[in-house]
Design a protein around this nucleic acid. Sequence first.
DNA 1: ACAGTTTCCCGTAAATGC
DNA 2: TGCATTTACGGGAAACTG
Lengths: 425, 425
Amino acid sequence: EKQPCMPTHPQKPLIIKTGVQFTTKVRLLVKLPEVDYQLKVKTTFDKDLPPGRVRQFFILTNNTKVMDIEDYSNGCLSVEFRHLQLKEKKYINGTKGLEGLLSVTEELHSLSFEACFTVQGLTIDLETCSLPLVVISNVSQLPGGWASVMWYNLLTDEPRNLAFFGNPPRASWNQLSEVLSWQFSTFAGRGLNKEQLTMLGEKLLGQHASCSDYQVSWSKFSKENIPGKTFSFWMWLDSILELIKKHLLAVWNENYIMGFVSKEMERTLLKDREPGTFLLRFSESHLGGITFTWVEHDNGDVKFNSVEPYTKNRLSALPFADIIRDYKVISDGVVPENPLKFLYPDIPKDEAFGPLYNSQPSKVHPYIPSTLIPISELRSNSSATPPSCQSPEPPMTPGEFDMLNEHLCLIDIDTVSLQALASGG
Amino acid sequence: EKQPCMPTHPQKPLIIKTGVQFTTKVRLLVKLPEVDYQLKVKTTFDKDLPPGRVRQFFILTNNTKVMDIEDYSNGCLSVEFRHLQLKEKKYINGTKGLEGLLSVTEELHSLSFEACFTVQGLTIDLETCSLPLVVISNVSQLPGGWASVMWYNLLTDEPRNLAFFGNPPRASWNQLSEVLSWQFSTFAGRGLNKEQLTMLGEKLLGQHASCSDYQVSWSKFSKENIPGKTFSFWMWLDSILELIKKHLLAVWNENYIMGFVSKEMERTLLKDREPGTFLLRFSESHLGGITFTWVEHDNGDVKFNSVEPYTKNRLSALPFADIIRDYKVISDGVVPENPLKFLYPDIPKDEAFGPLYNSQPSKVHPYIPSTLIPISELRSNSSATPPSCQSPEPPMTPGEFDMLNEHLCLIDIDTVSLQALASGG
DNA sequence: ACAGTTTCCCGTAAATGC
DNA sequence: TGCATTTACGGGAAACTG
């Protein structure tokens, strides 16, 4: 009933938006001999980065803080910086130079931490820095930034190769598909199964998808538009992830959304099924859309219908489960009918979606309750008859995901280990 | 189809939101003898305001600028400050003191302008200041702030009585109703007619509404809640104004929304009408809602039905004219019917609303177009039979509005006359 | 605890830069 | 001129603060 502007940016570490607060923490891994003075840490953004080539930022807020003993650990020294905020350095003399090579979400930056103390007459400098960071100025750049973070962490173990996107390596479909599934398990709670990944692989690679060690270029993954479309593969996939997060979470987690199915496969699956059998599929032509396709039998002929995809605007007016419950087709004035009977392969609609329906009748007495229902008015249809195939399977176990996620987060803006790179003095 | 977050705050002068840019202009009304040096003007916010009692703000940005000759006028000196921004002064030592008396939207502030020049050995100081300003920190405070601006400018000619809301005068219903109608003509393009104002008067004053010189208190207008409600009269009225601005502009300007009608009056008007006659009315129980009520004849009995009010959330999913076109009542499974036939008094629905319908069939081929339609499922109803009354009339001419509006704006944050209060030197 | 107020920040639109 | 990027700010929600 009311979800106009919900939050995004839910735990995407290593991406910082200018003007928005972020937090970082450093921990001292070596045990120091008792020091009775305060150990001050200074945080610097883009330290040592020569001007030109890339944008540069600085920390607008307080950037020094004293280390403290962590209560809950074994007496480690650590310090957490909160409310840090980044702002771009603007050069009066346009020292911007020849960027253009990299887009802003391909620029890699870093946070440095420095501390210095003296023990027994010996001055020791400590310094460390974060994994590469992406700086954006608007949430619209978040998908692109996240693509960079994924690619970097998937393909290199180098802690600080800021030139990574100057010549980014390719990823095998093997590696990539695993990461994509992880995205869905982390952000939507359920990963992708084999069939779904196969469809994605074919979409990205065409026929090569069968050999799982086929290499995918960075450009193909997130920069080039899909042929005939105005968006790249990752932009498309991410728009679906966002749609799930905001509007389809329960339905997705119940595994009721087949989602990634080619239209050919869809017909193959549905053609021998009971009339009124339907499946849910994401739009390939538009960003962030979901549609349902159902099968009808028209005296011997098999007919398929797909509804115009629902996007976030529609879904925020009416939850998707309710759309499925209430969808009606009006054919030339006859009694409207809901053509959706069985969720593929054969689950009665209400059995599947019943627990997800919203209980609507509001009953504010003097008024007649009213609701929106989705309808289609039909006059003419189309049909088809394609090949054959098999049915979906349980999702790929996103087993090692937790481990990787931890890795991704361990050395991030929330937690950066301060290693003693002691350069004596 | 797409209007999730549209802009508000459309020309409400004298209200400044912290952190948001505003513009002001000062013009020198006296002709100075030729001066060959630059005349610098300094803008100060809350100059001379003693700390305590009220919040204090300062101008975060550049606050001095050199006057320049206006090209388009007769060589007047003027200066326009752009990109000014306000920030609250925070006192470390909580010198806030005993506020509590006034709400923030009742606090009045001012912008001062100072200039100083020397001619023939004589130093002349110029100083002036704006009409009282209201400072808010969130758009949610805009309605309250605007109420203050209206009340002040309606009831006093003093240029700078910052203590006005310490003991605000009352307004006669005569004065107030005129201002309310102006609000609708300025912001929605059509003012309020006599019947509408009568309903509002009765709502605000009860029986006293008949004597048009009845006095309305500031508190009753915008501070006290309407009995039994959780909002004040002005908050309620303003929520309707916003609803019109964003979702009902065309329908309102065609005069198809009776809007302000008591339920009793509504029944009186409808009871002798053709079945299916309906009228549009704003909700009195909820903020920013509109409903339609239609009359039915049920073998001799007259029956009235009102739909649950549509609010901005629903209306942004489906334009109001389309709701009227598509509204259906489903009674126990029979063919759905649109009960709305004639807009009161007797205009065929499509004749009135036809030009305002959206042409929806989107026709993206492979898909069946789908739309949302508003429906009610009926099981049991209620009815009634009240007294009699007359019908609506053309709106009150908002004749002098332009003049007043100009007055309101003339001495505002956009245009503040700099008068030579020359205090010699 | 709580209500009035401010801060935070997403997401759209507009402005800006290249 | 068009595209990439930043800025602006409404609006909802969380945080603050007496």
